[in-house]
Every structure is written in structure tokens, then in C-alpha cells.
Design a protein around this nucleic acid. Structure first.
Length: 392
RNA sequence: GGGGAGAUACCCAAGUGGCCAAAGGGGGCAGACUGUAAAUCUGUUGGCGAAUGCCUUCGAAGGUUCGAAUCCUUCUCUCCCCA
């Protein structure tokens, strides 16, 4: 029943019958996934795809990770309405330093081949590129959704962006991919890989598309640049809190895509939800499951306790960072800025005026308050920022 | 090569001489409520200042004017049409 494991949570498999064929041959298949070295953190959205790759590993297949160091210099136009900024080699290298340990939180290191695509793309000569490009037409390249949308909206498209799919497709040729994984936004690129393989007389890869996970805002896809992501290396506390902040409408999708719960358990939860279980409790379960995957059950339990303590009971968290001001007597606005709780004095004033600043549970009303620090005092800003102000 | 349109804050977008630190929406932040960092509602959203205020910001640089996002000149970039 390998096929069921593989199909679970996928959106589309093109073509499905070729996948059956490949699986039937009972060879070790090479499953390719391109990763973008521009984002130094892996988040739950990318983890959806990585976890699928892990499914393949568990069935004995080989993961082939392509670090798009060369293609990052082009910038994938997928899902973008703007030309991406180009990265320097140094930036890419730095990002990748952080990357590997994160990846192996999900993948098995043994069954993972790690390749940089500059290895082959960097060697292509102008002549090679012209030969490759000659195999395809402009119409083929601009039919892709994101490019054609930008064309329609009269937005600029740089010439090199049109070559993106060509290079990513060539990766598939270079590593002889049997299967390529990606989000639904990668459809065009994945299919273009097949075209390249056809040109080179290889067996065509099967494209498997995973759903895109919406971020914490519930609207846009999870992405570092939108700031709506949960990083898999974040602290249990942060991770837990962020998961509690997803909109109720996304609960089931998150349960399916980010936890190890099986379909029976998810169906149970679905029924509970319909019968009126408090969605908050289901989110607590979700957060617990996810934190357990990337940290531990114990940490997850602690994070939950902490969450209930701070947000439901409105008590103090167990650990509060501390700050010791230089002066004994300090203007409250200056204190907020100096301690990093507010970026500017105007912002600090605004927070006070709106009742967002508390000293030992008492709301600060006066922006001119001169605070005499005689004993340690707890400064609270908004719902979740705490700081212990210490006597000098 | 010729003709036309455009560049506004984190993003989208209005504004064509003073009432513009700049409408509206999104996002962010805060408050209320709650079931929670959900939903909804309200407020707020350049910096400095206790404050009348001052400084920076409407692609860039100059200019006109008592006064410029707005008018003029040059430049940079983008899009469209023709060749």
C-alpha cells in the first residue's frame, strides 16, 4: 500500500500511471526536491513537502536535494509578482550553513543526496544555453500563470526570469530524477523538467504537487518574507503560541499537513469540531502535536502549561527576561525604547496612550511618568511581552 | 529610432499650488470582548519634542513661488503602441 502513503495529502500527481509503473519496478527511485537557499529557515509550509520526501525515504527511496544556489541568482518567478532580489554567493553559503541541521530534523541523512545546482549549471557555456533555449518557444515559457499574469498587468519581467524553468528543468536531467516534489506553485517548473528530460532522451520524471500551507494570517502562503510562518527551529513556546493564533478555519488543514495524526484521528477531531468542541482545545492539541515533532512531548506539555498560564489565566510566564536600566529614575518612554520593547519613542507613547503598558499589573496612563526603580518590577507590553526591570 | 502613460509611506492606491505627515484599503500594533496570539468591534500606524513646534518623506537633482507630492528643466527607471 505504498501508493496510499504516497498519495496522502498530495494535490496532484502527473501522470499518476507513470508513478505506479515506477513504484512497481521496485528499484530505489530518485526523488528530487529543489530548495531555495534564500530563506535560511525551514518553516511548516516547506516541511509539508519535506515530510512527503521522508515518506519516500521510509519506503526505501533516495532523496535528492538540489540547493538552488545557481537558480537563486535568477530568482524563481513562481508565485511572485515581483522580480526577486538576487543573492550573493556569501549570503547563499551562510544560509546553507543553517539549513542542513534543520533539514535532517525531517529527512534521513543516509538516504539524502545533497547537490548544489551550480555544479552543472555553472558549467554551461553560452553556446549550451543557446542550444537549450532553442528547444523551447516563447509561447511555452510565457504561458505559465505567474508570468502571464504579470504580463497582463503590465509589470516588468526580466529576460532571465524566463529562463528559470529551463534551468530548474535541467537539474532534473543532471540528477536523473524519477520523481520531483514541489508545492502546487511549482507545477510549471516540475512539468518543464519533464520536457527537458524528453529533450535529453531520459525517462520522464513524475511531478507530485503538495498543497501550499497558508500562514498564520490565514490568507497568504506561509513564507518567511510575509512574516506569517512557524520555523521548525523556533522555541517550543513561540511555536505553540503561533499555532494557537491560526484562524479557526485552518485547523483541519494544519492537522492534516503538519502533524503525524492518522486519518482516523483526524476524522474523529473533525466530528468533535462539528459537535461543538471548543476549537481552542483542538488548537491546543494541534500545537502540542507539532511541538512534539520538532522538540519533544515533554517540551510540548510545558509549552501548553505556559500558554494557559499566560493567556488564559493571565498570569506571569515562568521565565521573564530581565533588564537593568542605567538610571535609578527613568522616564517610562525612554525605558520602553532602551529596553527594546518599543522601537521609537512615538511608538512607546502610543502604546501607553492605548493602555498597552502595565507595571506590576497596573496600566500606565501617563506618558510623562518618571519611574523610580526601588525594587524589581514587571513591565508588560501588549499581551505577550514581559520584562523584569531590575534595580541597579 | 518615433509617439504615449507612469514612479506617492511596509504593500496597494487617492491626491494636480496652501486646509498634506499626505484620503481609502491591506498588513502591523494596541484595546474591548472571547474560546486564544481565533472571529468580531474600536483605536492607532514617519521621527524628535512636555508643547504652540521642529525635522525627514511623494523616483533623483536643480529651478519657479511667500508657499511644491502638485508647476518648469534635466536625469534615472518601468509599461504600452508604432518601426
Amino acid at each position: 500500500m505504498d501508493i496510499e502513503v504516497i498519495k496522502r495529502n498530495t494535490v496532484e500527481i502527473i501522470p499518476e500511471d507513470e508513478l505506479f509503473e515506477k513504484l512497481k519496478r521496485s528499484e530505489k527511485l530518485r526523488v528530487k526536491l529543489g530548495i531555495d537557499p534564500t530563506a535560511p529557515d525551514i518553516h511548516l509550509g516547506l516541511a509539508v513537502v519535506l515530510r512527503k520526501l521522508r515518506d519516500f525515504q521510509d519506503l526505501g527511496h533516495q532523496a535528492v536535494l538540489i540547493v538552488g544556489d545557481f537558480t537563486a541568482k535568477i530568482g524563481d518567478p513562481s508565485g511572485r509578482n515581483k522580480t526577486r532580489p538576487q543573492l550573493t554567493d556569501a549570503e547563499i553559503k551562510e544560509n546553507m550553513e543553517n539549513y542542513k541541521p534543520q533539514i535532517f530534523k525531517i529527512l534521513k541523512e543516509k538516504q539524502t543526496e545533497f547537490r548544489y545546482n551550480s555544479e552543472w549549471l555553472g558549467k554551461l557555456s553560452s553556446e549550451d544555453i543557446i542550444k537549450l533555449a532553442a528547444k523551447f518557444t516563447v509561447a511555452q515559457v510565457i504561458e505559465r500563470d505567474d508570468i502571464s499574469k504579470r504580463l497582463k498587468k503590465n509589470e516588468p519581467i526580466a529576460l532571465h526570469e524566463l529562463l528559470y524553468a529551463l534551468f530548474q528543468g535541467y537539474d532534473s536531467v543532471a540528477v536523473r530524477a524519477d520523481i520531483e516534489l514541489g508545492g502546487t506553485d511549482q507545477k510549471f517548473n516540475l512539468l518543464f523538467g519533464r520536457e527537458l528530460q524528453r529533450v535529453f532522451g531520459q525517462e520522464l520524471q513524475v511531478a507530485i504537487m503538495m498543497p501550499l500551507l497558508e500562514g498564520l494570517d490565514g490568507v497568504r502562503k506561509m513564507s518567511k518574507s510575509y512574516g506569517n510562518y512557524v520555523g521548525i527551529t523556533e522555541s517550543p513556546k513561540e511555536m505553540f503560541g503561533k499555532l494557537m493564533s491560526i484562524p479557526d478555519t485552518l485547523i483541519l488543514k494544519y492537522l492534516e499537513l503538519t502533524t503525524n495524526l492518522n486519518e482516523i484521528e483526524i476524522n474523529n477531531i473533525k466530528r468533535n469540531l462539528k459537535e461543538g468542541t471548543n476549537p481552542r482545545d483542538i488548537k491546543l492539541r494541534l500545537a502540542r502535536e507539532v511541538v512534539s515533532i520538532y522538540h519533544s512531548q515533554e517540551e510540548a506539555r510545558k509549552a501548553e502549561e505556559e500558554f494557559l498560564q499566560v493567556f488564559s489565566k493571565k498570569e506571569l510566564p515562568t521565565e521573564i527576561p530581565s533588564y537593568t536600566p542605567q538610571e535609578k529614575k527613568i522616564w517610562i518612554v525612554k525605558l520602553l525604547v532602551d529596553s527594546g520593547l518599543a522601537p521609537t519613542r512615538n511608538e512607546a507613547r502610543r502604546l501607553i496612550e492605548q493602555g498597552g503598558v502595565k507595571l506590576d499589573r497596573i496600566t500606565v496612563k501617563d506618558t510623562n511618568l518618571e519611574l523610580e526603580i526601588e525594587k524589581d518590577i514587571i513591565l508588560k507590553v501588549g499581551k505577550r511581552k514581559f520584562l523584569k526591570i531590575k534595580v541597579r
